[in-house]
Lab assay of single mutants.
Amino acid sequence: KTYTFRVRIVDEETGEEKEIEVTAKSEEEAKKAAEELKKKYPNLKVELE
């Protein structure tokens, strides 16, 4: 079973919002993916929905 999570990304500089879908095998995995995004884009606000 896989879970699909919507991750909302807000670029703090431009105020631009993007939504991406993360497919993960567990909620834990999705959280890790969101953390990776935060590391990659430090000025983005990442929200897991």
Rank of each mutant, 00 (worst) to 15 (best):
E13W: 07
Y41F: 09
E21H: 09
A30Q: 02
A33M: 15
E16W: 14
V10Q: 05
I20M: 07
I9L: 12
N43H: 12
V7W: 04
K31S: 07
S26D: 09
R8T: 08
N43K: 07
V46R: 02
Y41K: 03
Y41S: 03
K25E: 13
E49G: 11
K45R: 13
Y3W: 09
I20W: 12
A34G: 04
E47D: 09
K38D: 02
P42W: 04
Y3R: 05
K18V: 14
K31V: 10
R8M: 06
E17I: 14
T23Y: 15
D11A: 01
K39M: 09
E49P: 09
K18C: 15
E49L: 15
D11M: 03
L48S: 05
A30L: 13
K25Y: 14
L48C: 13
Y3C: 08
T23C: 13
N43C: 07
A30D: 00
K39D: 05
L48E: 05
E21Y: 15
K25I: 11
S26V: 01
V22N: 00
E35D: 10
Y3H: 05
A34M: 15
E19D: 05
E17G: 04
D11W: 04
R6I: 15
K40Y: 07
E36C: 14
E21M: 14
E49R: 08
F5T: 00
E29R: 02
V10K: 08
E36W: 13
T4S: 07
V22Q: 01
E27D: 04
V22R: 01
T2S: 10
P42I: 05
K25F: 14
F5P: 00
F5Y: 11
A33E: 05
P42E: 04
K25G: 13
E35P: 00
K18L: 14
E28M: 08
T23I: 13
E36L: 12
E19I: 15
K32Q: 11
V22H: 01
S26P: 00
F5A: 01
E35R: 08
T14D: 02
K40D: 04
T14L: 03
L37Q: 02
K31M: 13
K32W: 12
T14W: 01
G15L: 04
I20N: 00
P42A: 05
E19K: 06
T14Q: 02
E27L: 15
K31N: 08
E16H: 06
I9K: 00
E28R: 07
E47F: 15
R6K: 13
K45G: 04
K40V: 08
I20V: 09
L44T: 05
L48N: 04
D11H: 03
N43E: 05
E47L: 14
E27C: 15
T14V: 01
K31Q: 12
I20F: 12
L44W: 13
T2R: 11
E29H: 04
R8F: 12
Y3L: 07
V46N: 03
P42T: 06
E47S: 12
V7T: 01
K18T: 14
F5W: 13
V46W: 11
A24W: 06
A33W: 15
K1R: 11
Y3M: 06
A34I: 15
E16F: 10
R8L: 09
R8C: 09
E35M: 11
V10I: 13
P42M: 05
A24S: 04
K25H: 14
A34V: 15
E35T: 08
A24C: 14
V46A: 04
E28I: 08
K45D: 04
E29M: 06
E49H: 13
